[in-house]
């Protein structure tokens, strides 16, 4: 018990230090404009990746409609602030909550039928739902159609973003380490065995799906209040794929991995901007190469050897 507590404190200190350093660099202008503009997109991608990791990494169900949840949340939250005239400090938190809740409700609506399906069928159905949401938003007048929703106040700042990322990580990490989280991982490892020991598979699948949708929705609201405009075309299939790529590159079932990969994937295109024409090409090649290297038997054997040596040392230390 005591060990967990010191770990939590260490993580909290690290978070505060990161916040302080980034805030100082940003406020004093030590960070180049290019990078300070990236702070919020990085945060949004971290939220999206960590929440998608809950369904793909921990629950083990491939979904390709995460951008759909993001867009539902973004539109409902941003329409709330656009049409309501409340003071910002009441309006903005409410908008975040509304965005998250509406996305979560959609998570239930989509999850109940979709989660009956498995594997590739689930993937294609979530993809289809994402595309349907996009087409419906384009065809509605209240959302501004394909021209987009304009005039959103730019309320998202670095502090709000950082807190949101922190809350996302803490909630999901705690969920994973709880009884519920273990049930979710058990479903991933073996559905039949999990069912046999009395885990309510439908309930836990839906739980993971809805929590992921909620945070995607909140990330969407933050996204809208950062850019000031929402366009339905942003939330297409490619956006869902981008988030999935972050999750896979970071390692499925690793929250730290998702965070690191989200930072790399968001910053990399900006760093490569000099090679603008070759940017997508490099991105694609890196993606393929990563996958091939990761599943090369020789390399994974090598990694296992290193890991076992490392673990041996650790065990010996603990034994002492």
């Amino acid at each position: 018990m005591k060990k967990i507590k010191t770990k939590t404190i260490i993580w909290l200190i690290i978070a505060v230090v990161i916040y302080a350093v980034l805030f100082y660099l940003d406020a004093t202008g030590k960070l180049s404009r290019q990078f300070s503009r990236l702070l919020i997109p990085v945060g949004i991608n971290i939220m999206l990746a960590v929440s998608l990791n809950l369904t793909v990494g921990f629950l083990g169900e491939l979904t390709l409609g995460h951008a759909g949840f993001m867009s539902v949340g973004a539109y409902s939250g941003c329409m709330f602030t656009v049409f309501m005239d409340l003071p910002v400090y009441i309006e903005f938190p409410l908008a975040l909550l509304i965005g998250g809740l509406v996305a979560a409700i959609f998570g239930v609506i989509i999850g109940v039928p979709a989660l009956r399906l498995k594997g590739d069928y689930l993937a294609i159905v979530t993809l289809a739902f994402g595309e349907i949401i996009k087409s419906v938003i384009i065809n509605m007048d209240i959302t501004g159609g394909s021209a987009g929703l304009k005039g959103i106040e730019k309320t998202t700042n670095f502090t709000v973003m950082f807190v949101a990322v922190l809350v996302t990580i803490i909630v999901i990490a705690n969920l994973i380490n709880s009884r519920h989280g273990r049930a979710i991982c058990a479903i991933r490892d073996n559905v039949i065995a999990a069912e046999a020991v009395g885990i309510n598979v439908v309930y836990y699948k839906l739980l993971a799906f809805v929590v992921a949708a909620f945070f995607a929705g909140v990330a969407g609201v933050l996204y809208g209040h950062n850019l000031g405009i929402l366009k339905p075309a942003t939330f297409d299939f490619n956006k869902s794929i981008e988030i999935l790529v972050i999750v896979v590159l970071g390692g499925m079932g690793s929250i730290t991995g998702s965070v690191v990969a989200a930072i790399i994937i968001t910053v990399l295109p900006e760093v490569l901007r000099g090679l603008d024409d070759y940017r997508m090409l490099i991105y694609a090649v890196v993606l393929i190469a990563m996958m091939l290297i990761n599943s090369n038997p020789r390399i994974s054997a090598f990694r296992k050897r290193i890991e076992s040596k490392f673990n041996l040392k650790k065990n010996m230390k603990e034994a002492e």
């Binding site: 793909v56 491939l62 594997g119 590739d120 993937a123 794929i241 999935l244 790529v245 896979v248 499925m252 997508m280 090409l281 991105y283 694609a284 090649v285 993606l287 393929i288 996958m291 091939l292 990761n294 599943s295 090369n296 038997p297």
Partner: peptide
Amino acid sequence: KPLRMASPLTVLITAIGVSYLLQSV
């Protein structure tokens, strides 16, 4: 071919990578 034994998701991501590659070329 090198991914015959890999998880389906790995193969899927590789296929997406190939798709991006063809488009960017």
